[in-house]
């Protein structure tokens, strides 16, 4: 890509040079209890019409870049779900503290 190509959003990582030399690790460890619970929570909140998967993604995409790459997969989900529940007024902001 040429130098004047706009910088993609943080999550838009297809072809990104920074991972060019990173091997794809054969990580077959199944999701842990934390991840599976966050996953189930997202599904239940979606079933109840309290959030959509698109909103989940928007929330993940708004995580600042250093945290986006430092947090684990379901940690990013949890950040997004929490922010959405606060945004929609279902829980108080102090849940973050």
């Amino acid at each position: 890509m040429s130098d004047d190509t706009p910088i993609p959003a943080t999550h838009d990582i297809g072809g990104l040079a920074r991972f060019h030399c990173t091997p794809v690790e054969h990580d077959e460890v199944p999701p842990d209890g934390f991840g599976r619970k966050v996953d189930a929570l997202r599904q239940v909140l979606a079933q109840k019409g309290l959030m959509t998967v698109d909103e989940l993604r928007r929330g993940i995409e708004s995580i600042p870049e250093p945290e986006y790459f430092a947090l684990g997969y379901y940690e990013r989900w949890l950040r997004s779900i929490t922010a959405l529940m606060i945004e929609k007024g279902h829980v108080q902001k102090d849940v973050m503290e």
Binding site: P6, P8, A9, D12, G14, G15, D54, R57, R58, E61, S62
Partner: peptide, 16 residues
């Protein structure tokens, strides 16, 4: 088009 340059958005068209 690069909507991410204009403000908060969510798009499913990858940059490349």
């Amino acid at each position: 088009d690069w909507p991410e340059r204009r403000g908060p958005c969510h798009i499913r068209t990858p940059h490349y």
